[in-house]
Design a protein around this nucleic acid. Structure first.
Lengths: 271, 271
DNA sequence: TCACAAAATCACATAAATTATGTTGATATA
DNA sequence: TATATCAACATAATTTATGTGATTTTGTGA
């Protein structure tokens, strides 16, 4: 089953876009700066000050803090972002990207969850957003190596939270390694939500060995697996093969891919 | 080795005690209310309002919030705490208790840690405080099932954080169960910090099965184990035997016990 | 190398938002 | 029926965000 989620919700995120450049609060302004930066690769300080109608000093502080968080690099007169040749980037950047699409995908994913289930949630900002929605479907058991999800579900009543443990990775904001994989080998879930940063042909890819292993372990520990993928990630590959698309029971994405990359009605077709 | 930590540091905590009943901020006032409650089992609303020189309404709000947090029960004219026969209580209460003693013990414990070590930290508020101090000794590898420690050390550079995973327990603010124990069975540390709520004769006790198992697993996964115990917990026992004192290489406490309960210079003596 | 203009930074002032507390009056309770 | 509780609003205190101007740094071209 391939699910396109292309509807245009009137979300806070899209609302923010409408306001971009007008009167916005600090965090929205910073989000907007990151958006501009991702598009243009560089921003000009004076321009930003004008665009948001704030003083240069305020923009300086924004850039300082974002730089401190490792999201950009200040240069004289502005800031730049080096995505380099790698499309992969820190989770803190990804967290800011495409909030709208993610929200829609999370809603779609949520419809596959029934109260009483045991679900696995992997690392990544997409998964974090999904995790935050899961309380709606309580009672649930949630198994995850995603630090954001753990934090979010810790004190939610009627949600049994099973953390997977492992070595903490700041880059992925999650836990990985043998501890994680060993834990997964002894657990079983009804449903696993797996996200991927790259999808090409009939395969999903991942640039990180440890994250890939954790995802694979989840797939094999779950009765059904659902792949979550932003349409922008279509046609990209990375070092490690994460899985054949055929291994997933559902694939959720946010828009029609430009190239047909997957069979229409089943994940089981051949190339 | 038995370490008494009885020195009287001029800490913020002791400073707070000095000010108790005078001009204190909200959190300190609430802390003080809990202290009073733990001592007296019940407090009077009017009395509190007078004691802290605030309106009854403010005390009402304090008690409401503390009740909401499950730390006490409001009754007409005041509040009570039901410790029942159990001295055990929610970690949120323990977190508030005896901050001063805990700080001193944490400092003593810290002296056993050398940069480069791998240390285990168990659940509990005492351990959480210790965990917060560990960055001082970086580089370190820290293995823990304590949610507070995980949160605290997540983004600390030069600290490799290994979470143990398991089922989250709100009561103990940590992770427990087979996942936790299995993870521990495959790890090895130089030093384990174990805290206990009860110590009688030559044994440490714990009321909770799962927490006890996790602690035991830590002891056997560590080269050396250190017991942290508040002197108030001397002479108390609980359902499960956690360990013989002889199993620990050091015992850190905050004051001379009233009864001699352990050999003076070694943890290895017989009863 | 130097001067110098633009940019960055610092220290402090002001403004905005948040949080804590107090007051009053209506309602509930022993 | 006096007293306690609670809700709603007003005020105060605190924190956070922004702006301003003086001072320092930095890149640039003579």
């Amino acid at each position: 089953m391939l699910i396109y989620v292309s509807g245009c919700y009137n979300t806070i995120a899209s609302n923010r876009n409408r306001l971009k450049g007008c009167d916005v609060k600090r965090d929205e302004r910073r989000q907007a700066i990151m958006d501009l930066l991702i598009e243009a690769r560089a921003v000009d300080l004076d321009d930003l000050a004008g665009r948001f109608a704030v003083s240069k000093m305020t923009i300086h502080r924004d850039l300082d803090d974002l730089e401190q968080a490792g999201l950009l690099r200040k240069v004289r007169g502005g800031a730049t972002i080096e995505t380099g040749t790698q499309f992969e980037s820190d989770f803190r950047i990804r967290e800011l990207q495409d909030a709208d699409a993610k929200t829609r995908m999370a809603r779609a994913a949520l419809e596959l969850v029934e109260p009483g289930m045991t679900v696995m949630v992997n690392d990544g900002s997409m998964a974090a957003l999904l995790g935050a929605c899961l309380p709606d479907k309580a009672p649930l058991t949630v198994i995850t190596n995603n630090a954001a999800v753990i934090d979010r579900l810790k004190d939610v009543p009627r949600v049994t939270l099973i953390a997977l443990g492992g070595v903490f990775s700041a880059k992925f904001n999650g836990f990985f390694g043998v501890v994680t994989e060993a834990a997964l080998s002894r657990l079983r879930a009804d449903l696993a939500f797996i996200s991927t940063p790259a999808l090409a042909g009939l395969q999903a890819f991942h640039m990180d060995d440890a994250a890939m292993r954790a995802k694979r372990a989840m797939i094999s520990a779950a009765g059904r697996s659902v792949l979550l993928v932003n349409h922008r990630r279509f046609g990209r590959s990375a070092l490690h093969v994460l899985a054949d698309l055929a291994e997933f029971d559902s694939i959720i994405t946010d828009a029609t891919p430009h190239h047909r990359i997957a069979p229409r009605s089943t994940g089981r077709g051949s190339s």
